[in-house]
Design a protein around this nucleic acid. Structure first.
Lengths: 242, 242
DNA sequence: GAGTGGTCTAGACCACGAG
DNA sequence: TCGTGGTCTAGACCACTCA
């Protein structure tokens, strides 16, 4: 409503936003150096950097230490479809990098999977890529005896089909979502700043026997992903079913 | 994994975090002034402020201009239950402030509700409180002819019951979630900084005739809310149903 | 008016990336 | 090596809150 004293950083951020939107700075391009921009806008470097920080938080700019500020490619939003429809976000042209490790249940995992501390698990550490940019991060934990036997490092398909095999007996999928800032590690992996919010999804799948067969911790950058849930609430008297 | 040069702001933030966790600084208490803290830690004020910014992003500290930095009350997480179960987050001891306005469909709303531009709507502007702190923000839009007739400013219950009345014919509830930083207005309303991520939920409810009867835009602070979705995926041959 | 945070300056030095 | 961003300093001045 009120705009008492538009601070310089906001003025500068608005101007840069406009120049990015109008194509004056194109996707993938490097911006002038911070020193040059500071001179151009007649502000000090910390002020200019705080303007860039706003753009980073919106996902418009990616800083690469030692080489410059780059206009991020505007990728279409990838929608995570909830409700057990998709094992993990894959709206197609995503490449997956999977790393498999054997670990022991610890921390939250014991509670999520309802297994004893130290219980053997297989961890799938997945990183999905859209073009050259990393898109999503997933850590999927499966009790060791349910994991594909002797799976090499190079078979993301095996994981997919394996999870598909597990699907029929699935009884319940519970997904808990929250919004937060990424940890430094996540920010590095996803090549986003620590000021861009991420959507964090914890998914636990239970089979018909009540056993938790999978726990997935997903981290999706907020600017290029969202999650969609569609429910058909059963009315008290469900008379007409399409 | 590696912690090459723990920057001063992180060291300071860690120390303050520890002091908050151990109760050295208690919830609701004011921290020493930034100048005092800067002296104590032997850093300049901008450095100390950047340390506090980290704590703000975690929801541990609330800055109030002109009066100080305060330790936020650690409120239990409020869980928004998806799937049309709850009209809006109300896990009980929440007070609601509702403001009703008549508006015309504009922008995204026309697409969400699938009504023509300028179509008459009733807006419910809700702010839920947990104790003294605001907790959640909701803007709910209902086509004017479905809105409770002549509802005063003071009847949050009427809204609840009204929505309950609408529930039976509900056929589909679609919820789209994303993570982002709050707008300056949202940050002010929710009394959070602009560096604390929020969970943004857009919910559209459709009745059995296919008409969109409600669009809700919810904004929940990331540190004290999450969203939970439970699905029971129908297996191909659903043999045993509990 | 006294004390608080909000913003900004004009430098300095360090760490990283690429040639 | 050189240019980039990352961090930090030691101030300054303004805006807000509260007594």
């Amino acid at each position: 409503m009120i705009r008492p004293v538009p601070s310089r950083r906001h003025t500068i951020a608005d101007d840069l936003r406009r120049q990015i939107a109008t194509g004056h700075f194109k996707a993938g391009e490097r911006l002038p150096s911070e020193a040059q921009l500071a001179t151009r806008y007649e502000v000090s470097t910390p002020t200019l950097r705080s303007a860039l920080a706003l753009l980073q938080g919106e996902g418009l700019v990616e800083k690469i230490h030692g080489s410059g500020n780059f206009v991020r490619h505007l990728l279409r939003k990838i929608t995570y479809v909830g409700g057990g429809a998709a094992p993990y976000p894959h709206t197609e042209p995503l490449r997956l990098t999977v790393r498999t490790t054997n670990v022991q249940a610890h921390g939250h995992l014991t509670a999520l999977l309802r297994v004893p501390f130290g219980s053997p698990l297989t961890e799938f550490h997945c990183l999905s890529h859209q073009g050259k940019s990393p898109h999503g991060l997933a850590r999927i934990y499966v009790p060791r005896d349910l994991a594909p036997a002797d799976m090499g490092e190079e078979s993301p398909e095996a994981l997919t089909t394996r999870l598909a095999e597990l699907c029929p007996p699935l009884a319940e999928v519970q997904e808990r979502l929250s919004a937060r800032l990424p940890t430094p590690e996540e920010a590095t992996t996803l090549r986003i700043g620590t000021s861009l919010a991420v959507l964090s999804i914890t998914r636990v799948a239970t089979d018909t026997t009540g056993r938790a067969v999978e726990a997935a911790l997903l981290v999706l950058p907020g600017d290029r992903s969202d999650a969609l849930f569609t429910a058909h609430p059963p009315t008290k008297a469900r008379t007409s079913k399409k």
